[in-house]
Design a protein around this nucleic acid. Sequence first.
DNA 1: CGAGAAGTTGCGGGTTCACGCAAGACGCGG
DNA 2: CCGCGTCTTGCGTGAACCCGCAACTTCTCG
Lengths: 240, 240
Amino acid sequence: MKVLIVEDDPLHRSYLHEAVSAALPECETVIEAENGLSGEKLARDHKSAHIVMDLQMATRNGIEAARTIWKERPETRILFWSNYSDEAYVRGVSRIVPDGAAYGYVLKSASDERLKLALRSIFVESQCVIDREIRGVQQKSLGQTNGFTDSEYEILVDIALGLTDRAIARRRNLSLRSVQNRLQQLYDKLDVYQSTGEDSEDARFNLRTRAVTTALLRKLLNYSALEKAEADLQEWLTNL
Amino acid sequence: MKVLIVEDDPLHRSYLHEAVSAALPECETVIEAENGLSGEKLARDHKSAHIVMDLQMATRNGIEAARTIWKERPETRILFWSNYSDEAYVRGVSRIVPDGAAYGYVLKSASDERLKLALRSIFVESQCVIDREIRGVQQKSLGQTNGFTDSEYEILVDIALGLTDRAIARRRNLSLRSVQNRLQQLYDKLDVYQSTGEDSEDARFNLRTRAVTTALLRKLLNYSALEKAEADLQEWLTNL
DNA sequence: CGAGAAGTTGCGGGTTCACGCAAGACGCGG
DNA sequence: CCGCGTCTTGCGTGAACCCGCAACTTCTCG
């Protein structure tokens, strides 16, 4: 058995290395990559390897790397190991996991025990292991109770990028009015209507910007999601 | 000599502990705190301690903690140890350092050597040590070449929070028009005027939102700055 | 002291937004 | 087939926003 570790913090990397060796005595090779790009490359070179992947890396983040790896070999088992349970990450991951693939999501704050257990479950038993805390976020995100539909999320991203209503309409092939409808849905869900001036009369926020910030503060959106969205946007722009 | 380590990642904490012991044999006590709040408390209990402080902690970030610590004892020596060189952090730090205080700013990616040298320089020699990389950001931020004046930064934060022009005017005691002037300065500096539809006619961004996102992507603003600004805003709101 | 740079404020107008109202369009169980 | 909910679209209005123009106030510096 081979395990590939993709993690940019050297301390965490060596910690993982140890944890893997301890939890999986049957693992004869441990390979390390210190960013998403070299992670992808090493994954290509070592077809059979299981992967432990950090999200949030400087040059190429975990979600992107995982996506290209899974594209080439969908049965790859990947354990995501992250500091954060941002909805943006959870959504990002569950968006890219192939049908039936075994994967896991464990927080860095989890105990040694939890981590080792997860390593065995997913790499040996092919089970999916998702931290309890993450599950909560996942529920909220997928079940529509408090969460977002894809179209709402899409618009959120679009306004975050600073597109005008008209530009969004063009990009998503909608009428102007439909875009605005979706915006209102979004505003409702984000509860952006609190007053600014307390009891006085006018007292409202700039809904557009407020929505973005609220989403950021609630971690429905985060830096790396924005970064990716911006890249997509630039691509779309150059393609007429 | 006593050293207080404030850092929420246990791995980094123990790494720091070792580094401190190795670099400062004259240090007889090393204390650890795993978030900003308990860091403040321990700093109060151990008046003479020097501090190594992480920025970016969950419950109370390093800048906040440092501010209250310096407020109580301005001559405290603090070495900031951070993953990021975001302008938002650098600006945040240099905003709170008391006159004449000895402090340092070292990136986590720095070598062992650099870290130990910084530890000795600041705690023993009372020198300021700022990573080369940080210095660059600082220059850019303080010198107005490419950077922001305080008033521009202020407005950036205000629109990021989702305030309307009118609300900003009230908050900052300005006329509506002045607010809009500052906004235009900001738009200029952030270079927000690129077209959206390429050669075609309309093709502009929603400047307001675009400015915020651009700032985020350029790390002039980041999550923790937003968080703090939001808290300030709420406070201001309740005070009529 | 006077020229000039920098910042503040009012006015006016063109544009974009937020959103109520209402008329189709599509899907789905009865 | 019909009724009902969800989604899309058009029209129209009032508010907010972006910004050019121009008169004033400070400040600074020679």
